[in-house]
Design a protein around this nucleic acid. Structure first.
Lengths: 191, 191
DNA sequence: GTTACTATACTATCTGGACGGTATAGAATT
DNA sequence: AATTCTATACCGTCCAGATAGTATAGTAAC
């Protein structure tokens, strides 16, 4: 198999184990078995467990980051584009394999420093959301609520049924539109 | 030492280890050392690691639950009391030892079923918040944003500085007041 | 165009250390 | 006398990482 696709397959196997069986079952042997290769083969791609987890986080961060960047680029409107992108990607364009989020849990458990790529991504998004041309506190609240959803799902802290989730999304989306109109109105008044 | 306070001291020691050194360093020996007792003494109070983690979650859930219940009781207003209590406890009355939240991480890692007490607490709060006499979707968004704050802190996913955090709290609090007035107005119009 | 060599991508196996849990004997506290 | 421990030793299991060997593909010298 080609190197890159094998790497991704391994990362997905590892994420699936963390997500379904917990971090204590993330052993190199288990990952190798899940990915359909030998333990040695796994160590060829990722020379240590830490390297494997690092790969998981980097993959996750890169995926999320590029999706949000894409949304920002494609947005016909400037004002509010980061807030909209963050909301839209989190609710509607999450990693097809939901398990991928488990990379965060793995990093937190194995070595918190490995979370750096995600941490940096969040710093970037937060800065952009605060300078998105909308009220920065309201925009931050929208981001926090969005995080609340996916973090609670990651930890399986509670179930929010799909209908309610959609209603929340709709309301947040409308709120962004209101903030947009407020800001535009204010701008006109200033001129 | 009295049995109950020894138990709590052990739970705090365990939480502190998870919070500062990660779940892989939560060994029975390490907890005993941190709590200043022997391994045998620890096993006297908690006959297994799973029992220890169960104790951590139950303690956390009980603490949170009783604080929210207290806030609800003390609230002079009926409408919105659960939403206010949830917001206020999470922002201003968290466990004095912040580490206690780590019980959630420990349970997620050791055995997700141990999260049941917290899961049930959340179900109760969500039900109450939806029937709090405010717009249920807006109230849910307030809860989600609140969760976003403490979950991100738990995972150390990003830093939100204290000033911004206070501004967010203030805005959420004002929002609840607006929702209160909206609901009261609507009620009067109906009569 | 076959032989020799090299790099890549693995497999199979072993080892050393750590950890959970058990056991036991006894000491201090209440 | 019962409870609440301390101290220590031990067993079985598990796992990360190391090591050595294998398969395959390409490359290049002759």
């Amino acid at each position: 198999m080609a190197k890159e696709s094998r790497r991704v397959a391994i990362l997905e196997a590892a994420s699936s184990i963390v997500s379904e069986k917990g971090i204590f079952n993330l052993t190199l042997e288990a990952v190798a078995k899940e990915a359909g290769i030998s333990k040695g083969g796994l160590l060829y791609h990722f020379p240590s467990k830490e390297a494997l987890v690092q790969g998981m986080v980097e993959h996750l961060a890169h995926n999320y980051r590029s999706k949000i960047a894409r949304n920002v680029e494609d947005d016909p409107l400037d004002r509010g584009k980061w807030t909209r992108a963050f909301l839209n990607v989190t609710f509607n364009q999450g990693y097809p394999n939901k398990d991928m989020h488990a990379g965060l849990l793995a990093a937190k458990a194995v070595n918190p420093k490995l979370m750096l790529p995600l941490y940096q991504a969040y710093e970037e998004w937060q800065t952009n959301i605060e300078n998105d041309g909308l009220d920065p506190i309201d925009a931050t609240i929208i981001r926090l609520a969005t995080d609340g959803i996916w973090l609670a799902e990651l930890l399986e802290l509670y179930n929010i049924d799909d209908q309610k989730k959609k209603a929340v999304y709709k309301r947040l989306h409308e709120w962004i539109q209101d903030l947009y109109l407020d800001a535009e109105k204010k701008k006109k008044e200033e001129n």
